[in-house]
Simulated assay, not measured.
Amino acid sequence: MDNDDRQLEAIRLLLPSAQLTAGELWLKYFAIGGSAGQFEVEAFLYGAHQLPTLERDLVAQTLNEQFMALDLEDRIPFSAEPAASADDRSVDHGRAPDRDGTSNPDRSAGQQESEG
């Protein structure tokens, strides 16, 4: 059984504790940024459809927030993501390159443009 199966098993086991219908769960999931349709989420709950990792984790987050609101200690685990590769870690996201092509974490793109 892989992590996706364990997560779905936990969701199906704990869903009644959340005191939500599938439709109510979907509405709360959608409100926190979920993008799958209600039919897709319901099919996922019955094991008839797979959701992408992010969407599964948003379902888990929705249930976890409901458990907290009900003062329950139940929690759905999040998906285990593979570790980032060395190439992924070396990518500099959000830093503007200096004029020499390197990145300087202390300067934003706006600062560089105003200097030029």
Rank of each mutant, 00 (worst) to 15 (best):
M1I: 09
D2S: 15
N3H: 14
N3I: 14
N3M: 14
N3K: 14
D4H: 12
D5S: 15
R6N: 13
R6K: 15
R6W: 12
Q7S: 03
Q7Y: 08
Q7W: 07
L8Q: 04
L8S: 01
A10C: 00
L13R: 14
L14G: 04
P16A: 03
P16F: 00
L20T: 06
L20S: 06
G23V: 04
E24I: 01
E24A: 11
E24V: 02
L25T: 05
W26M: 03
K28I: 07
Y29K: 06
F30A: 05
A31S: 13
I32Y: 03
G33F: 00
G34M: 01
G34I: 04
S35Q: 14
S35T: 13
Q38G: 13
F39T: 15
Y46H: 14
A48F: 05
H49C: 11
H49N: 13
Q50R: 14
Q50P: 00
Q50I: 09
L51Q: 08
L51A: 05
L51F: 09
P52G: 08
P52C: 06
P52V: 09
L54V: 12
L54R: 14
R56E: 10
R56D: 04
D57W: 07
L58R: 15
V59C: 12
A60V: 03
Q61V: 15
T62D: 04
T62Q: 04
L63M: 14
N64H: 09
N64M: 04
E65P: 01
Q66F: 00
Q66V: 00
Q66N: 01
F67Q: 03
F67G: 05
M68S: 15
M68Q: 15
M68L: 14
A69F: 02
A69R: 12
L70R: 12
D71S: 10
L72R: 06
L72Y: 01
L72E: 02
R75F: 04
R75E: 11
I76H: 00
F78V: 09
S79Q: 10
A80G: 11
A80L: 15
P82T: 00
P82F: 00
A83G: 07
A83I: 06
A84K: 09
A84R: 07
S85A: 04
D87M: 10
D87F: 10
S90F: 07
S90C: 07
S90R: 13
S90M: 11
V91T: 08
V91E: 02
V91C: 01
D92W: 11
G94H: 06
G94Y: 07
A96M: 05
P97L: 01
P97T: 00
P97D: 02
D98L: 11
D98S: 09
R99P: 01
D100F: 02
D100N: 06
D100L: 06
G101M: 12
G101H: 09
T102R: 15
S103W: 13
S103F: 15
S103M: 07
S103C: 13
P105D: 08
D106G: 12
R107P: 00
R107C: 01
R107H: 06
S108L: 08
A109E: 10
G110N: 09
Q111W: 08
Q111T: 04
Q112A: 08
E113F: 10
E113T: 02
G116L: 09
G116F: 07
